[in-house]
């Protein structure tokens, strides 16, 4: 029974995506939406990404220094581990998990409200492919902006680690720099970017699906928003395992 309902949901999601990825009625109108979504979903998320990443970078550095490093471990461990965690997991996966709350609830609520106030019906009656017009620019906008957010998150996390070094005096900046530069594989950076592109698709398309299917009123919109965040977070976590295995 539960499996059947999941399969039904998957089928409906795939059918919706089929409608989303179709030829736009008028490219200029979609372009306009695409630019708006890049600003709304991407640029407007920069502040939260910078703040969260800064503090997490600082905390990782402090935790490693205080709890892992010992006399028989090299002094570059804190910097090295901070870099690897930021590059491999935090800036791509965990940051997307955080964004799924902000972006996901925004998308589900916006589209859900448009559904219950008949704005989507109005688009359909006009002959506009509402699924494509409303969802495609969001997916494309988020995928475009995600690499920038990943880079900013990594940089902010490393600045946080330096803040721990300079302000907290828990390790010397020279040791931190040595660790950050130790055994660097550029592919790890690209791996984070590739993973984040998949997650960008998930955290926009899944909430859009929940919002698009809302029936009822404000209570149902609220429920769809919550369900969307839970579902997209779970899917990000599951797909993180597969992507990590695939790309490592």
């Amino acid at each position: 029974m539960i499996l059947s309902s999941y399969l039904h949901a998957l089928g409906r999601y795939l059918m919706l995506m089929g409608r989303v990825f179709s030829v736009p009625e008028k490219f200029v109108m979609y372009w306009r939406q695409y630019v708006k979504e890049m600003i709304k979903l991407g640029l407007d998320s920069i502040v939260i990404v910078l703040i969260v990443s800064f503090f997490i970078g600082a905390v990782i550095c402090i935790q490693i220094k205080m709890n892992i490093e010992s006399a028989w471990m090299p002094h570059w461990v804190s910097g090295y581990v901070t870099r690897e965690i930021m590059l491999l997991e935090f800036s791509s996966s965990i940051m997307c998990l955080i964004l799924s709350g902000k972006v996901g609830s925004n998308i589900a609520t916006e589209i859900g409200t448009m559904r219950v106030t008949q704005q989507i019906d109005a688009l359909e009656i006009m002959g506009v492919n509402s699924a494509s017009y409303l969802i495609l620019p969001k997916i494309a906008g988020m995928i475009t902006m995600m690499p920038l957010l990943v880079i900013l998150s990594t940089v902010s996390g490393i600045l946080g680690a330096y803040a721990a070094a300079y302000i907290g005096h828990i390790l010397t900046p020279a040791h931190l720099t040595e660790g950050l530069q130790y055994d660097f594989h550029p592919w790890f950076f690209w791996m984070g970017v590739v993973k984040s592109l998949f997650f960008a698709f998930i955290i926009t398309s899944v909430p859009a699906y929940y919002g698009y299917r809302v029936e009822g009123g404000s209570v149902e919109v609220g429920k769809a928003s919550t369900d969307a965040v839970v579902a997209s977070s779970m899917i990000v976590l599951f797909s993180d395992i597969f992507l990590t295995r695939l790309l490592s």
Binding site: Q118, D121, A122, E124, I125, M126, G127
Partner: peptide, 8 residues
């Protein structure tokens, strides 16, 4: 549908 107008 482009020939239709609707007031909801």
């Amino acid at each position: 549908r482009r020939e239709m107008g609707m007031i909801f």
